[in-house]
Every structure is written in structure tokens, then in C-alpha cells.
Design a protein around this nucleic acid. Sequence first.
RNA 1: GCCCCGUUCGUCUAGUGGCCCAGGACACCGCCUUCUCACGGCGGCGACACGAGUUCAAAUCUCGUACGGGGUACCA
Length: 564
Amino acid sequence: MNSPTNHPANQSVVTRFAPSPTGQLHIGGARTALFAWAYAKKHAGQFILRIEDTDQTRSTPQATCNIIEGLQWLGLDWQAGPDPQQPLEKQLGDTGPYFQSQRLDTYRQYIQQLIDMGRAYKCFKTPDELNAARQQAKSEKRAYKYDSTESRNLTPDQIAECESAGKPSVIRFRMPDADVTFHDAVFGDVTVKSSELEDFIIQKTDGFPTFHLAVTIDDATMGVTHVIRGQDHLYNTPKHVALLDALGLTRPDYAHLPLIFNSDGSKMSKRDKAKTARAAAKAQNIQSVDDATGVSSDDLSAFLNKKTDDINIAFAIADTLKLTLPEIDVEDFRRSGYLPDVLLGYISQLGWSHGHPTERYGLDYIVEKFALADINKSNAKFDRDKLAKFNTEAITALPPDEFRELWKAHCARYEPAYLEKLDDAAFALLATSYQERSRTLQEPCDNGQFFIIADDAIEYDAKAVKKFMAKNDGEGFTMLRTLRPALEALDDFTAAPIHALIERTSTEQAVGMGKIAQPLRVAMTGSSVSPPIDQTLAILGKPTVLARIDRCLNVLAETAESNA
RNA sequence: GCCCCGUUCGUCUAGUGGCCCAGGACACCGCCUUCUCACGGCGGCGACACGAGUUCAAAUCUCGUACGGGGUACCA
């Protein structure tokens, strides 16, 4: 099958990612950015980051920063757009500015050109009138379509009259009375019938262009050769193509990507986090969250009553309940401890496949293999298990010092207590212990809390105590009493000598390693889980080990043994 | 409602008329390893949505049905 293109082979590729700055970088957006970036990279072209902030009510500078930070973390760099090293006003590239709010003059110029050509006109219909017509059509079970006859035929006098009366107007594009066909790299030739097309708005009453006008003009004036975006834009494309044709501008090549959904088929949206937090809070019937989160009980009840989906409240609940919210934005995945290359490798497989001799790969491999022809048509569901597995493998394969540095950076950003409480040597030992048993960079933080809390803050898990300590007349306590002097006498308190000591004890007492390791675990962690016990003791250090044995014996032994 | 698109194991996918009673990966199950939790090794379960048609031959082509998705905004 041939793949028609509107661009000569020797023209260099220009792609772009054009998010609207209304929050964090969404995982779906990240994949769109990845594909556009990879295509440009593969063809030694240019990748543009353009900020689509024409919706004045929803756009924020903070959101732009979030998106920039997310892209940078992923390692997707752009040659034109906001300069990530500079304040937001500074921009890279020579086809800018790259904020749509700074391109209003350009849009006006093209809109005026369309008006002058008779291809655009003012329309004084109000949203209310339009809605009424829509409702009317619906109640008559009829397909609604904007009726252009009245506004198209307004005389100059009538227009002047409306304007002097102060009636607000929009500008609409006069859609040609013909079917529109365009080529899409994923869907092939797409034709939309004339009857499905209407005179759409290109300039709002506030004087801002609509998305359709802005995106079309920007892509054309920035020299974008390949528009790679989500499938939700497929049926916007006839509008863009018609605009381009009217203006005599070259059509870019299009590729519309399948969408990404949750495993239950719902859209991956930021509201999933609120939903999950709310459901957990209701299930456990909590009345308040940790004071440290700064969320009041009023905030909480507003959230529980669905008055707000405030993400900060959702996180406060998650913190209080030790709950992981579903990852939706790139920042969520970063916080959960996924490696950027793994995340990218995984999401690249959602809707794109090249025959996979392997499925574990990173950015370089994607660039090497990427082709628009290998993009699928059908939507994909996001599978966190698979992502987690890939992440585990990548973490395990890391050189130990590299893992330590990555984990350190993660702690600095999300769990500073580890860096404050542990010296370099202890941190390094802990990193080594956890590397092979961690799915994410966050997991050792969650599982290793007992390494950084005070000796008297250990909470003993009742089941673990019963099973490993109190059972058989408190054999666990007996073992601890046996071990204590031997451990105290150990001069070189590192993993190897500790291991030797435990093995010797095992032989002398004629018991399995488990009979020794598990009571120690309970004393050290309060639970039955930790890294190998010799490493655990070495990292904790002799004073802490002895203190925790003593505490376990003093606090726990009496009550447990009397209850036994 | 209307217009379009899609549909291979639970999930992501390989597959472009004979190589496929359908291959890989994740999940799941079992065994091995084991001081706990993990990691790891080996094995197993498991799909062409349904119905017609074309053909010597169909997961692959055609039609219909069902289901899923997108669009139908002065949001992008």
C-alpha cells in the first residue's frame, strides 16, 4: 500500500507536541509526545513544543512548567518551544512564539484574510439560541447541524445594526459544499461527507481563535510536516484541511493515534485519583486526615460529598491511609518510582508494534524502529502489572552504583527522611539490599521504614508475634535471649560475620535458619519481612540491634508469654 | 439519535489467503530455589466477537448482527 505524502522526500521532518496547559502531563499525552519526538528524531528532523493556551479560563503557567518538567524527565527534548533552562518568556526556535496566547496577531491576520476572501463571516447567534436549536433537534430525534443560511446572508447593513446594538459575534468559516478527503497514516484515506460538515467557529466572542483555527495556522506557519496526535482529533481534521485549502497552505501529513484506557475500559483521567481516594476514605469511614497535610475536616467532607475533586485532598487521604492512587500523569509514575526509559518503552507498545524481537527497550530502540505504518487502529488498555514487571527487570539489571544514585535522587524528591536519617555508608548498604527486591524506586522507601524510625516506634504485628515469638512457649524470645550476648560480643558488625554467627547458632541449637531469622525480624521490624537478616542487622548497626532486642524482650515478652 | 472507526488468550500484541488445530510478553496456576519478602529457573492454562458468503483453502476477502470507541462545543 502506498503512503501518499504532501511533502517532498528531501524536506526535513518537523513534528510537534501541542498540549494545553491545564494540569500535569497526562500519560496519553506523553505517548503522543514520544511518537512525535521519535519520528522527528528518526528522520533527523525537528520537534516543537507548542503551548496551546487559548482557553484563558483553564490555562496556567504552572501547568506549562509541569509539562516541561515531565517531558524533561522523560528525556524528550525539543528544538523549538519554551526554553527549559530559562524563564517561560524565553523561547527556542525561529518559528515562534510557541505560546498561542502570544500569536493572536497571526491568527487575526489569517482570519481577516478569510473574511476578505468571503470564506468567513460574522455570526451573531448566541449560545442560548444554538442550544435551543440543538435541543429542538434532539426532541425531534433529528441530527442537529448548525444552520448557516441566516448568518451567511447577513447584509452589511444588518451586520452594522447588530454591532451598533452591541451584540457579540463569533466568526465562522464558510465550509465548502463538498466532501472532504484527507490521508491518514493510520486510517488511510478518510472521507467526511459534506452533509456532516458545518460552518464552524474560528474566532470566539472573546476575540480568541478556536482550537481549530489556531492549530491549523500554527502547524502551517511553523512548518510542521507531520501532525501526530490522538484519535480524538480524527474528525477535527476535515475542518483543518478545509481551512488549509482555503488559505492555499500545504496540508501536513496526519497520523492519528489510538487512545489509552484504564483496564476497566474507562478513560484514564485525573478524576480516577479522586475516585479511588474517595472510595477508600468511605470504605474505612475516616473523619479526618493527618494534620501535616493541611487538609481540614471541612475540606475532607466537601471532597467526600463530591463537591470537589481537589487532588491535594486525594493525596492527603492516600497518605493517611497508606494508599497508592492510580497513576495517571507522568508525575504520578515518577512518584511511584518508575524509570523514565521503562515508562516510555512500555507506553510505546500501546498502539504501536514492529514485530517485537524483544519487548524490553528504551528510547534509542524506539527511535531506531519507529514507523507510522506500524501504528494500530484500535485502542489499548493500560496494564500496570506489565509496566511494573518491566520496571523490576530494569532495576535489577542496573549497575549497583547507578541504582543507588537513582534511588538517592528519588528519595531527595519524595522521601528526604532516608537521606536525613541514614549516612552514606548505611544508605549504600540499604540500596544494595533492596535493589534486587524492588519493583520501583518507591518500594524500598515504603518497605524500609523500620530502618529510619526510632527504636521505640516499632509496632509489632500481632500475627508475626504469635507465629514466630509466642508459639512453643515463647521459643522466639528464648532465641533472642540466646542471640543477644553473641551479637553484643561481635566486633565486626557486618553482614558476613553476622551470617557466620547465625549459621553457627543454627548448628549448635540444631534448628533451621528460619527459627533464628524470624524472631530477629520481628524484633527489628515488628513484622516478618525484611531484606536478608544478616544485611538487615548490619545496616541497623549494633546499638540499634541490641536496643530493639531489649525492647522486644521487655515490652513484648511479658505480655505475650503471659497470654500464651 | 446521527456520522465514522474498531474487534486475535484476562491485558498488550504477532499475523496482509495455505508456513497458524494461531507465536511472544504481562497476569494467573503449578513445581524448583529459599531465613522472610522478593528475584530467578522450568512447566501449564488460555484467543481469531457472532452468523452468513467467496475460495480447493480464511484469523486474513465480502456482507449482516452484537459489542467497544471517537465525533457531534464560543474545550482543546
